[in-house]
Structure formats: structure tokens, C-alpha cells
Design a protein around this nucleic acid. Structure first.
Lengths: 156, 156
DNA sequence: CCTTGACCTGAACCTGACTTCAGCTCCGAT
DNA sequence: ATCGGAGCTGAAGTCAGGTTCAGGTCAAGG
């Protein structure tokens, strides 16, 4: 907790791989915090690097900042998060990941069956007709599992 | 090829599930084409539904429109794409999907090992330090496989 | 023929996630 | 003391991927 343990924005940028601008942005958005020197410069605790690594991993799998913030908010405010705290978070993430993987596998298998069966005949194939709109029948199960329906940029 | 086989934008919207606005947008962007009536209204060939379904699947797994356009451009311009043409495309997509799944699995396993081994000690864990920036050593292999490094919104 | 709902266009607007810019301040090494 | 690189701020810009709007046109059923 010595002042010496605090990192400048430049150091955090270098160690985290995020540019300064992103770090300031994340602070504005409430994903990370920093204290200030008397002169107003940011000083980060080392723990911020963990948060940033977490943010990076989350972003990499397409998670939006809102959701990341919500996850990070689970961490204790008062004390420095323990290994256990991070583990809990990671486990939750693992579920998220599993969901996404399952969704992708389902899509892939759907693709395979399409190729295999020659059902590209539009009118029948659920892959090509996710919503069964063609038949105008009761819509039934949608092709894409929830994880994939959550489209990257605001659901189509 | 009868005029009767042509679909209005409303029909395409309903059958594809895309709103009119997106269809016009995709046309501007060169992802789909439409002929026009004497009065200037769009008329789509049925084949467009296949393209749109393809676009939907691609978007769902996070592929950008540029890449989708590139894929669709592989289809023959002259003749109507055959089942074989679509199969080729689907197979390429399958590879894409495999890549993405592998990436996710790698990330998940990385997460697991992190949880299990207690290596959350920042300085060593490759998951939390993708770029090995901390050690400032020769950077070595990056944690995230290419498929995940391609960050959703223009690589960080 | 007329009405009315479906379509048309170009331009402006939107969200998320940042980046860039202008103009100014801090601070550590010499 | 001083100088230059590192930091600061608020506002504006960017990019993808569309959506919304205003104001006008088409076309099919009655």
C-alpha cells in the first residue's frame, strides 16, 4: 500500500496492453478506479491489472462493457479481492464460455447436416430458415441457441 | 424466372426476418441484389433468401459484413448458385466455426487451470497476462488464438 | 378511377467502444 | 531553474451496422 506500489497510467498501459485512452475511458465507465496525486495524475493499485486482464478476456469473447462492469461489481469493494473472489468470477465466466461453445457446436452441426443431407432446399432446412417463417407455421424452436441470438451489436 | 417468382421487399422482409431497412442497407453494401419494377420498386429473386440466411448465420457468430461480402462474392455471378456452390461456402464456414470453437475451448481451459492452480498471481499466469508484458521478456506465444484476437469491434 | 397501404430516396440519427485533438499542467532529471 | 516527456480535460471524431424521418411515388383491390 506504499505510494511506491502505485502505478502511473503509462505503466498500467504498458503492462496491460491497453492504450491510455482506453484506461481513461474505462475509468469514466466505472470499470476501474484510480486515486490521484496532489497534482491530479492517476495512480493505480496493482490489482487493476487483474481487472484489466479480465476485461480483455471478456472483450475477446464478445462481452460488452455493461456486462463486464456487472461482473466486476461482484467483487468486494472494501477489501482487495482474494483468490477466491476471482475464482468465483472465473467460474461464472466458464459457464458463459460453455454456453457460447455449445451454441457454436450446435450451429456447426446444423451446418454439417445441411451439407450432408442436401436439404439446402430452403423450404425445410432449419439452419437456413431459423424462424420457420417460410412455412408460416407455429414457429417452433429457433435454430440459434440463446448465446448466439445475443448478436454482437445489438440483436438484429 | 417468371415475374411471378420475384419477391417484394415486404415479402423478403417477412421471410428472412430482416427489416426493410436492413435489406436496403445490405443492397447498398453490395451483399444482395434486386432488380426493379418499372416504377422503381425492388424485386428479389428467391435465391436472395439463401443469401440472407447465410448472412444471418454469419452475423450471429460475429462475422463482419466485409467478410460476409467476401464470402458471398465467391458464389458465381452468372448462374444461380448450385447446391455444390453453397456446400463449398458452408464448408469454409465450418472451418471458421471450428477455429472459433477451438479458441473458446482454449480460453476455457486456460481459465480452468488458472482456477485450479491458484496461479492468479498475475506475474506468471498467461491467461491474465496475454502478452507477457509484465516480464518484459521475449513475448512468446500469445494466449488468445487468432480467432479470439480478432476482437469484435476493431482489434484493441 | 381512386384510395390506401406498400415502397421509394437521401439525410440524419443512434449505440458501443474507443481515439484524437487542442490547449494546458505536472514533475523528475540535469 | 528549466525543460521535455508524461499527464490532464472536455469535446469532437470514428467506425460498424443499422434505424428513423420527411416527403413523395407505386400499384392492387374495390
Amino acid at each position: 500500500m506504499d505510494a511506491k506500489d502505485l502505478l502511473s497510467i503509462g505503466e498500467v498501459a504498458e503492462r496491460s496492453g491497453f492504450p491510455h485512452s482506453a484506461l481513461r475511458y474505462y475509468e469514466r465507465e466505472g470499470l476501474v478506479r484510480a486515486t490521484r496525486t496532489s497534482g491530479g495524475q492517476r495512480r493505480y493499485e496493482r490489482g487493476v491489472l487483474r481487472r484489466l486482464a479480465f476485461i480483455r478476456a471478456a472483450r475477446a469473447i464478445g462481452v460488452g462493457l455493461d456486462e463486464v462492469r456487472a461482473a466486476l461489481d461482484q467483487l468486494p469493494e472494501r477489501r482487495t479481492p482474494t483468490k477466491g473472489d476471482w475464482s468465483r468470477l472465473s467460474r461464472a465466466w466458464r459457464a458463459r464460455l460453455d454456453e457460447q461453445i455449445d451454441a457454436l457446436l450446435a450451429l456447426r452441426d446444423g451446418l454439417d447436416s445441411c451439407i450432408g443431407c442436401g436439404c439446402l432446399s430452403l423450404a425445410r432446412c432449419r439452419l437456413w430458415n431459423p424462424d420457420d417463417k417460410v412455412a408460416e407455421q407455429g414457429s417452433g424452436a429457433r435454430l440459434l441457441p440463446p448465446a448466439l441470438r445475443r448478436t454482437p451489436d445489438r440483436g438484429v
